[in-house]
Structure formats: C-alpha cells, structure tokens
Simulated scan of single mutants.
Amino acid sequence: MTGGKSTLLATVPTDAEGWRLDRTLAVLIPTLSRERLKALISSGQVATDTGALARDPAAKVRPGTNYTVSVPDPAPAHNEAQEIPLNVVFEDEHLIVVDKPAGLVVHPAAGNLDGTLVNALLHHCRGSLSGIGGVERPGIVHRIDKDTSGLMVAAKTDPAHVGLAGQFAKHSIDRRYLAIVAGWPNPADGTVRASLARSDANRKKIAIVPEGRGKHAVTHYRTVQKLKKAAMVECRLETGRTHQVRVHMASLGHPLLGDQTYGRSRPEHRETLARLDFKRQALHAAVLGFVHPITSEALRFDSDCPQDMQHLFSELMLSETSRKEPISTRSVLKGV
C-alpha cells in the first residue's frame, strides 16, 4: 500500500471473453462491489498492463489482459465516532447485528447530529470498516424509529452492503415486530395492503394514500395474546416502509399503545401508561432473519421485549396474577 492507496491485480481468464469490464473485475475482486468498481473505473483508477486507463465499465475484456485497480483508502466518515454502549447480538468481519434500545436515533440528521447508532458503530467498528462506497462508515440498509426497540443489521464492507440491500429490495428479509395495540383486532389475524406516503397535512407523518401514489406496503398481523382492552400482536413485514406498522395498525382502529403520533391514548389505558411512565410506541423488532451476504448461511436472531414493554404487558394481563417471568420472543411466536 502506497500513497494512501492499495493496488490490486487481476488477469482476465479465458472463460470471461466478451464480458463487461465491471462484471469481470467484480468476479475477480469479490472484496469490491460492482458499483464500487464502476466508480473506480470511471474515475481513472483502473489501468491495463500497457498503462492505458480503462474508463468504460461496459468495455469488453479479452482473456489474458492484466488490469491494475488502485483503491484509495476509505475516506474518514463525516460523522464523529462516539463511545456509546451497544448490545451486539452478532458480529463478523462483514456485518454486525445490534439490539437497539428505544430512544436511540439510527442516523444523524437535523436535530440529531450525534449520539446516534451510526456514531456508536463508527466507534465500535473502528479499524474494521473497509469502506462503503469509498467511505469508512457502516452500511445502514434499514432503520428503526427512534422510539422503537429491537434488532438491526448493518454492513461493514461494500459487498455485504450490496448483498443485504438486495435482500431488503426483494423483501426476502424476515422481519417480525411485537406490538401492544389498543383493543382486540377483528379478525384476529389478517393482512393490511395500503400504500404509504408523506402526509400532505403534516410532513412529519405518514399517511395511507391511493395505490400508485405512494410506496406499496404490506403488513401481515397475528394476535398472539389478548390483554385488558388491548392485545399483543405479531406484525410481519412484507415491505419495510417508514412508520409502516404504526400506520397500518392505526388504520384498523388499533393504534399502538403509547403512540402519540398515530393514536391518542384511550381512557382505559391512560392511567396505566402514566403510572408506568411509558412514553413511546409499544413496538419492538423481535425477529430478524436473512441470508449472510458473503457466506450464504441462513441467520435468524430473536430479541425479547425490553423491560418497559414487559411491564406494560404484565399490567395488562387478563389474569389477576401478573406474569413474573420475562416474555420470550420464541415462546410468544411459537418458534415460527
């Protein structure tokens, strides 16, 4: 490595004759994504053995041709690395799965420039981020609302980022939430298919809109426990839109307890929420399943509800005897 760059050599094999340059290099250099290689080619970082720059990602290659790929060291992330405690569920050199607490913002934005999950990951993963798009940062492929708890995955390398993003785009990720909602859904199980978009009346809110106007959104819900004028519901996401579970359940007349944006507290729950000082939507990302983008191993992670939701659940139990043992995600969802 010299001058802040690493140099990689690749020789075109006989079976790649006529392939595009970007495709060929992506096969020969699996540590770089095809999109990253396209950017390197276009910016003059790829040369043939004659010294000529190869600037066209679509150029056809010839067997035996040698290419030199110069990869600049990842640029430092704009965001500051901060030592914020993380509950790491799984980690290897390609990705990391964390159990996010309620109250932690995922990504820096106006009003939350630091103290976020990204800041925490920059500190925790320091030295092991190979660069997402050339920048030393974690690859955030999905988000969870600030006041929602639960499982999230982030990429540490470019190929892992591309692979995870592809699975989310194909809706093949298994994402299951546990929510405590007002009332008893009727029917107890069902599917909500309703497109979502920013509300015209309030740009901070998401609203259901006619099909074709917003983003297609599908939530499969199942009642897993009836409570006092409430229910614990499993919501399986077929798509993953902003505020999807909150808006879809509210559209059924069963808003999440504690959700001040999409459903005011009902009188029968107001005293309980106040006594427990429960000030967030009762929503937890309990299950996350996906195929490891590098090893192809099928992975599944389960997270039990945090203490505040455990207490709320116990207070709302129909039985006079409050439940003492923690709610196990595996047992509640019966291992599905």
Rank of each mutant, 00 (worst) to 15 (best):
Y177F: 08
T65H: 11
M309L: 15
L104R: 03
E271D: 11
H78P: 03
G18S: 11
E320Y: 06
V105L: 02
V224H: 06
V106D: 00
T24V: 15
K5E: 14
W184V: 15
P210M: 11
N87F: 04
I208A: 05
R246E: 06
S43T: 15
R236G: 08
V181I: 14
L8E: 14
A231T: 15
T157C: 04
G134H: 01
I41N: 00
A58P: 04
Y221V: 13
I96S: 06
L21I: 12
R222V: 10
S328Y: 03
D15Y: 04
D92R: 08
V141K: 06
S195W: 13
W19T: 14
G214W: 00
A52C: 01
R323H: 07
G139V: 04
F301E: 03
G183A: 03
P101S: 01
D174Q: 07
H94R: 08
P85M: 12
L178K: 10
H216A: 09
Q310D: 15
H123M: 00
H216P: 03
D174T: 12
V46Y: 00
I132C: 05
T321W: 02
E325I: 10
P13V: 13
L164W: 10
A207G: 07
E234P: 06
L312P: 02
S265T: 14
D189C: 09
G131Q: 05
Q244Y: 03
R203W: 08
S130W: 09
L227W: 11
Y262H: 06
I84V: 13
V291T: 15
L273Y: 00
L256C: 10
L333I: 15
A182T: 13
P76I: 07
L25Y: 11
D56N: 15
M232R: 09
A59N: 01
G3C: 01
L196D: 09
A197Q: 12
A109P: 01
L32C: 10
V291Y: 01
T48W: 04
L256S: 10
A58G: 09
Y221M: 07
G134N: 01
A250K: 01
P57W: 08
T191E: 15
R198S: 13
R193A: 13
D259R: 02
L9R: 11
G263S: 05
R62N: 10
G166T: 07
Q260E: 13
L333Q: 04
V218Y: 05
A274G: 01
E297P: 00
G134Q: 01
W19Y: 13
I84M: 10
T321K: 11
R203L: 09
R126V: 00
L283F: 07
L32H: 12
A298K: 05
L283T: 09
E211D: 14
D304F: 06
S331N: 10
K228T: 06
Q260S: 06
H171I: 07
W19N: 14
E268V: 14
L122A: 00
E80P: 00
A165E: 12
Q307D: 11
H269R: 08
T223L: 15
N87G: 03
S6Y: 04
